[in-house]
Design a protein around this nucleic acid. Structure first.
Length: 585
RNA sequence: GCUCCGGUAGUAUAGUCCGGUCAAGUAUAACGGCCUCUCGAGCCGUGGACCCGGGUUCGAAUCCCGGCCGGAGCACCA
C-alpha cells in the first residue's frame, strides 16, 4: 500500500484513467473498469491487487464527488490529448486455416451430387473451399459425388449447370473428378479392407441388423472368415445378389456410444437395369456409399481441409475408422452450420418438385434462391462471395436476410450503374404555356459525370405551347391542389385537372432553386414519344408494366441499370420491349 | 429417445482458446439530421445484445456446474 502511494507515475495514471472513465459515464467512474485498464499496463501489480484496488477505490470516490463539468475541465488541463479514439474500419477476412504449416499445399474440394441445381445453401461450401485454396496458393477440386443412381439420382444436365455456376461465382476449378468414373478404385480398397478383416459382407435384412446393433450386439456376418467374405464380395460383384441382399460394412466399434457409427455401410447393390446411372448405365451393380467414396477420395486426392456442413460430423467419426485401417491421416475439417435466407426455399427436393409441378417458371425463377435465379436478378457473384466470407465458417446456423445481400450488392452496383427513368402506372401529362424549347441533359450517373449523358428535346406545340409526358400516376395522386411539381432536370408545373386518362397542367417556371424552396416533389418523366415498353419482373414473380425512356433502347441483355426512384434492375431481353428483373432498391 | 454441435442487438459478425484496455467493437436494418435535381449513394448522429441460474475470482461474454432454447445426425442418401 505504501509503496503504491509513493509511486507518482502510477497514481497519475490511475487518476487519468479514472477521470476519463468518469467523463465517459456521466461523471461516475467505476473501479472495476479502472483496475482492468491499470492491470493491463502494469501486470506486475496483480500480486498486490488488494492494495491497488483500495487505492483505486479511494481515487474513484474522490473523483466521483466532482461534477462532470469540473472533471471535464481538469482533464482538458492535465491531459489535453487524452480523449477519443478514432473509428476503426475493419475489413473482415477469413480466419486462418488450421495446421497450414503441416501441408506443402492446401487442397480443398467442393463435392456436390449433381441431382439438382446449386443454390445459396451450397454457397458456404463452395466459396469457403475456393477462397481458402486461393488464400494459401493451393488447389480447388470439384468432385461430383454421383454414386446413388437410385434414391438421389444424378441428372446429366446438372453436371454442366454446376460447372457454370462455379464459373459464374468466380471459383476456378483446378481439377475435376467424377466418382462414377472411379468405381474400380473403391472396389479395390473394399477388397483390401475385406482381406484384412476390417470389413465384412453383411447379408442381414436391414431391420434385423439395426435392432442388433442398437443393442450393441454384432450380427452373425461380422464373424465370417476373410475367405468367406471375399467369396461373398465376389458374388456381389458378379450379380448373384439382388438389391438389399448383401452389403459391405466397415467394422468399427460395436460399443460406440453413437449407434450411427457402429459398423457403417460402405458398398451396396443397386439394380441398374431398373435404375440405370445416367453416365454408366447398368455397367456397375455395386455402388459405394458416401463415407466409402468420399473417404477414399479425400485421401487419394490429397485433400488437406474438408469444408462441409455440420451434418457430416458423424461421418467424420465413421470415416476415421477406415483411415486408421489404412494408416492414413484424416484431413483437417471445418463443419459449418446451415445457411438459410429468410423466406427462401433452400431444399433441393422442394425446388425440384416445385419446378416439376410448374409452381416455378424454371430453375431461374426469381422466387428461388438458386444461383441461376440470383444471377437473373442481377445479384453479383462478388456480393455473394463477400457475404459468405463475412459470415465465415462457424458452426452456428445462420439465417441471413435479403436486405443483407442487397446491401452488399448495392455497394458493387451503385458506383458503376447507369441511371434511367422508368414510368410505371403511366398517365399522360400535358403541360401548356411552355415558353420555349428545352433540352434536358440527364446524367447517366449522379456522382460520375464522365460516364455521360442522355438528352431529350422538348418542343412545345400548338397554340397553347403544349408538351406531353408520361409520368407515374402515384406521384401526383394525393392532393395536388396548389402544389408545384418539378420534372427533374426540366421545369416546374402546376396541375389544373386530373382526369382518368390524362392530366392537364400549366408551366410555372424553370428554376430549380424555386422548386427546392417550395419543397416541390421532384418527379421523373418520359417524353410522350420517347419511350419503349418495359416490364419489370419482381422477386415474387409479379409483373410491372410501364415505359422506359428511349435511351434504354440500346441496352444489352445482362446490363444492370438503376431506374431512378425505383431500384436496380437487370436487363434480360431487349427486343422491341425491355424485359427486366428487379434486384432491389 | 440416443449421440454430437451451438446460443453476443431485427439480421450477421468481432471478442470466448489464454478472465482485466469490453459498463461489449463492426456491418446491415431502424430512426433523426446534413448533402444530393432519385425514394439510390455519401456524410454525421441516436437507440439496440453477451440464453437463464448458481459457482470460482478483487474482476466473468470469456473458466466450472446445472438448466433452458435451437440445430444436426441416428438411411443399403449425399
Amino acid at each position: 500500500m505504501l509503496i503504491l502511494d509513493k509511486d507518482k507515475e502510477l497514481s497519475e495514471i490511475i487518476q487519468k484513467v479514472t477521470f476519463l472513465n468518469a467523463i465517459k459515464h456521466n461523471g461516475k467512474a467505476q473501479s472495476s473498469a479502472i483496475i482492468g485498464k491499470i492491470i493491463v499496463e502494469y501486470p506486475d501489480l496483480k500480486k498486490r491487487i488488494k492494495d491497488l484496488s483500495n487505492l483505486i477505490d479511494k481515487t474513484v470516490l474522490e473523483i466521483n464527488l466532482l461534477s462532470i463539468e469540473e472533471q471535464t475541465q481538469i482533464v482538458k488541463k492535465r491531459w489535453p490529448n487524452a480523449d477519443k479514439k478514432e473509428k476503426i474500419k475493419e475489413k473482415r477476412k477469413l480466419p486462418p486455416l488450421k495446421s497450414v504449416d503441416e501441408y506443402s499445399k492446401i487442397i480443398t474440394r467442393f463435392s456436390p451430387n449433381p441431382d439438382c441445381v446449386l443454390h445459396l445453401g451450397s454457397a458456404r461450401a463452395i466459396i469457403l473451399s475456393h477462397e481458402y485454396a486461393r488464400k494459401y496458393g493451393g488447389k480447388f477440386i470439384l468432385r461430383f459425388e454421383d454414386t446413388d443412381p437410385k434414391v438421389k439420382k444424378p441428372i446429366i444436365e446438372f453436371y454442366d449447370s454446376i460447372r457454370k455456376d462455379l464459373e459464374w461465382l468466380g471459383c476456378v476449378i483446378d481439377e475435376e473428378y467424377i466418382q462414377s468414373d472411379r468405381l474400380p478404385i473403391y472396389y479395390d480398397y473394399a477388397e483390401k479392407l475385406l482381406s484384412k478383416g476390417q470389413a465384412y459382407v453383411c447379408k442381414c435384412v436391414p431391420d434385423d441388423f439395426r435392432k442388433k446393433i442398437n443393442q450393441k450386439k454384432e450380427c452373425k456376418c461380422r464373424s465370417f472368415s476373410v475367405k468367406k467374405n471375399l467369396k461373398h464380395w465376389n458374388l456381389m460383384l458378379e450379380g448373384a445378389y439382388a438389391e438389399g441382399e448383401a452389403i459391405v460394412r466397415i467394422k468399427t466399434d460395436i460399443y460406440h456410444p453413437n449407434p450411427a457409427v457402429r459398423d457403417w455401410p460402405a458398398l451396396r447393390i443397386i439394380n441398374t437395369n431398373k435404375s440405370p446411372h445416367p453416365r454408366t448405365g447398368n455397367k456397375y451393380r455395386v455402388w459405394p456409399l458416401y463415407n466409402m467414396a468420399a473417404g477414399i477420395d479425400d485421401h487419394l486426392m490429397g485433400i488437406t481441409h474438408i469444408i462441409r456442413g455440420k451434418e457430416h460430423l458423424t461421418n467424420m467419426v465413421r470415416q476415421k475408422y477406415m483411415y486408421e485401417y489404412f494408416a492414413w491421416d484424416y484431413p483437417e475439417t471445418i463443419h459449418y452450420g446451415r445457411l438459410k435466407i429468410t423466406g427462401a426455399l433452400l431444399s433441393k427436393s422442394k425446388i425440384i418438385k416445385g419446378v416439376k409441378d410448374g409452381d416455378y417458371y424454371g430453375w431461374d425463377d426469381p422466387r428461388l434462391a438458386t444461383f441461376e435465379a440470383l444471377k437473373k436478378r442481377g445479384i453479383q457473384p462478388e456480393s455473394i462471395k463477400k457475404m459468405i466470407i463475412d459470415v465465415g465458417p462457424k458452426t452456428a446456423d445462420v439465417t441471413l436476410s435479403w436486405e443483407n445481400l442487397y446491401s452488399y450488392n448495392r455497394k458493387f452496383l451503385d458506383p458503376k450503374t447507369n441511371r434511367y427513368f422508368l414510368v410505371l402506372n403511366p398517365i399522360l401529362l400535358t403541360v401548356k404555356f411552355v415558353p420555349r424549347i428545352f433540352e434536358a441533359t440527364l446524367k447517366l450517373h449522379p456522382q460520375n459525370p464522365d460516364i455521360g449523358f442522355r438528352t431529350y428535346k422538348i418542343i412545345p406545340e400548338g397554340n397553347q405551347n403544349q408538351v406531353s409526358f408520361w409520368i407515374d400516376k402515384n406521384d401526383v395522386k394525393n392532393s395536388f391542389k396548389d402544389k408545384i411539381f418539378r420534372l427533374m432536370e426540366l421545369f416546374n408545373f402546376r396541375i389544373d385537372q386530373i382526369n382518368d386518362n390524362d392530366i392537364k397542367a400549366s408551366y410555372v417556371s424553370e428554376s430549380y432553386k424555386e422548386a427546392k424552396k417550395l419543397r416541390s416533389k421532384f418527379i421523373h418523366w418520359i417524353c410522350q414519344n420517347a419511350n419503349i415498353p418495359c416490364v419489370v419482373i419482381m422477386p415474387d414473380a409479379s409483373i410491372n408494366n410501364g415505359f422506359a425512356e428511349s435511351a434504354c433502347k440500346n441496352l444489352k441483355p445482362n446490363t444492370i441499370i438503376q431506374f431512378e426512384r425505383f431500384g436496380f434492375v437487370r436487363v434480360d431481353q431487349n427486343e422491341g420491349k425491355l424485359v427486366t428483373y428487379y434486384s432491389h432498391k
